[in-house]
């Protein structure tokens, strides 16, 4: 049996249906190759289209979302346009919506904290964040985010004060959501690039708060 190494989370021991297991890879990999090649032979799709789409997917990472958030923090006019129409504001920064979804940007304030989930499948703002993490696609997050969001947030180490509304957006159709986290205090002098480094994927899903010292490293 063909074996592949995967970036498993070492803390997670038991088998998990979302995560590829090398023992089972062969059969489905063969099926994928066979389906794709048959469709190419029948000229229904092109091999170049698949290659291009892989490049598209590889080019979409949370760094794009971080750039959008940092711009919104630094430029009030952009922020207003982003909140009015998430997709067209992202397109201003060159971020295309290849999957033809709309984007609603949800602004966290001192009164409201937003959280996004897709209870039915795995809808996610892929054009601007890339592909979702496995936990976002698994039952515990999907089942509980809509019924006990504060407990879910606490499991991510995020405690929202009682007086703040926790507002959950469940994606079901063609709209995708992106959370605009609150700008951390003490960042008044930061450049846009420094601001972007504070913005993680989890802050844009709403399971974490942006803070100094917890952002991405190496920027």
């Amino acid at each position: 049996m063909r074996r592949r190494q995967h970036g498993h989370d070492g803390t997670h021991e038991h088998a998990h249906p979302e995560i590829s297991e090398s023992e089972r890879l062969g059969y489905f990999e063969i099926m994928e190759t066979a389906v794709r090649e048959l469709l190419i032979e029948k000229r229904l799709i092109g091999a170049d289209e698949i290659r291009r789409q892989i490049e598209v997917l590889d080019s979409r990472t949370p760094a794009l979302g971080a750039k959008v958030v940092a711009r919104a923090w630094a430029d009030p006019d952009f922020r207003a346009r982003l909140l009015a129409n998430g997709r067209s504001a992202c397109e201003e920064l060159g971020i295309s919506f290849y999957d033809d979804t709309s984007l609603i940007v949800l602004e966290n304030t001192e009164k409201v904290h937003n959280l996004i989930v897709c209870t039915l499948c795995s809808c996610y703002p892929r054009p601007v964040l890339g592909l979702p993490p496995d936990w976002y696609k698994l039952k515990p997050y999907r089942a509980r985010a809509v019924s006990e969001p504060r407990s879910v947030l606490a499991e991510f180490g995020t405690v929202i004060p009682d007086e703040v509304e926790v507002r959950v957006s469940d994606s079901t159709a063609m709209v995708r959501y992106l959370v605009l986290p609150r700008r951390p205090e003490g960042t008044e002098d930061y450049s846009e690039q420094q601001l972007a480094a504070l913005v993680t994927r989890d802050t844009m899903i709403g399971v974490a708060l942006a803070a100094i010292g917890t952002g991405r490293t190496g920027l």
Binding site: H8, D9, D134, S147
Partner: peptide, 23 residues
Amino acid sequence: DIGGLPAGPIQRVDHELAPWEKC
């Protein structure tokens, strides 16, 4: 359709997609 059903703790797992998965 699992929104609101009982479920265990969040498992903060992720993995890098295998080439065939990305394909």
